[in-house]
Nucleic acid binder design. Structure first.
Lengths: 222, 222
DNA sequence: CGGAGTGATTTA
DNA sequence: TAAATCACTCCG
């Protein structure tokens, strides 16, 4: 029988980290449980994102199952799917960002240079030849203008990578209407906003986490 | 741009019911939307089955389209077709379920005997007569036929185990239709699962608590 | 512990 | 496959 409510060593994490499971005793969720982790210094973590932010890339939590405290290779699959989608979004953001850059260098570009980027974004960023830019434009247009070609490419929508990697049927996407242009402008606007928010949020989160850590540890050691 | 996140009157439902549509803002399903309904008293409903269970026979939702909030006569056909097929083996399911209940009950009894139980549960556990089994079935049925007794137990809906603590007015639940039985088949299954989980969890929690207490007292008296 | 928001699973 | 339902996470 498992001992709940006790801080257990967690082999999947670095030495000194503990895991605790607390059963809810009443309310609608009676019987459900909450899982917490404690750093070697005693800081309490209540969620995987929180843990992730703290550990950064010192530990890869991609396969880490927060509830069980174990590495679950099976999760990798699902994460891959997720990553793919994230790459997708990031690709979109990145290229829309590029387009925007053609018109004006902007605040967001500044931000990008001055802070660490999400992994997915970095991997997309490096190649900036005209050819890839063109593909990206076509791709971006395609994604938001299915009606133009009459296509309904579910695959492309969910996995733009297939469009980004193919050198081919993008020409069709250039049959564009005014409305599509307007639509795209809105997309760019929203994308910029989203990106800024995401980056800001991430940066702030890290800062906040670190600040709190300092606070907690201060208390703990006091 | 449409204003989402606003509770709209829903003419297809009784007066006072509201409908809300919320767009998912992030994650894999970003852009998709969820539809919720709110009863006149403000209770939130997240799916048609949930709504159905609550409204029961007071409102016929056969043609009700949950997403749009409107009556769609076209839906009726499919429902009738499906029901006819299922009626085929309904009584059989019911009795199979009853037999299965005997077995399942025994399994749970094992659990009950091997660990300490919350006070309310103890009174239920030891007794294995047909009477308690009947009560259990009635209780379970009751959960899916709130309209019959006019009761609305949020707690019961979310955590069936809570019903084990109530001793009563289950007899009314036996005014049941074939469809109710079919639905119940699934309910019973889920309820049993939840119950076992809840008992296990609760038992473990108590055991842990006792262990800890014993430990503390030991230290204290030492 | 609650509950909104999102992931995971089931259904049509 | 997508839509509908259900389950869970995560933070207040």
């Amino acid at each position: 029988m498992i001992m709940e409510r006790k801080r257990m060593d967690c082999p999947a994490l670095p030495p000194g980290w503990k895991k605790e499971e607390v059963i809810r005793k009443s309310g609608l969720s009676a019987g459900k449980s909450d899982v917490y982790y404690y750093s070697p210094k005693g800081k309490k973590f209540r969620s995987k994102p929180q843990l992730s932010r703290y550990l950064g890339n010192t530990v890869d939590l991609a396969c880490f199952d927060f509830r069980t405290g174990k590495m679950m290779p099976s999760k990798l699959q699902k994460n891959k799917q997720r990553l793919r989608n994230e790459n997708f979004s990031l690709s979109k953001l990145f290229w829309e960002k590029r387009l925007e850059g053609l018109r004006s260098s902007d605040i967001t570009q500044e931000v990008l240079r001055t802070m660490e980027l999400p992994r997915g974004l970095q991997s997309v960023g490096p190649d900036t030849t005209d050819e890839t830019l063109l593909s990206a434009i076509a791709s971006a247009l395609h994604m938001s203008s299915a009606p133009i070609t009459g296509q309904t490419s579910t695959a492309a929508e969910k996995n733009p990578a297939i469009w980004l990697n193919t050198s081919q049927p993008l020409c069709k996407a250039f049959i564009v209407t005014d409305e599509d242009i307007r639509e795209q402008e809105e997309k760019v606007h929203q994308a910029r906003k989203s990106l800024e928010e995401a980056l800001m949020a991430d940066g702030l989160a890290r800062a906040a986490e670190l600040t709190r850590d300092a606070g907690s540890e201060g208390k703990a050691s006091a």
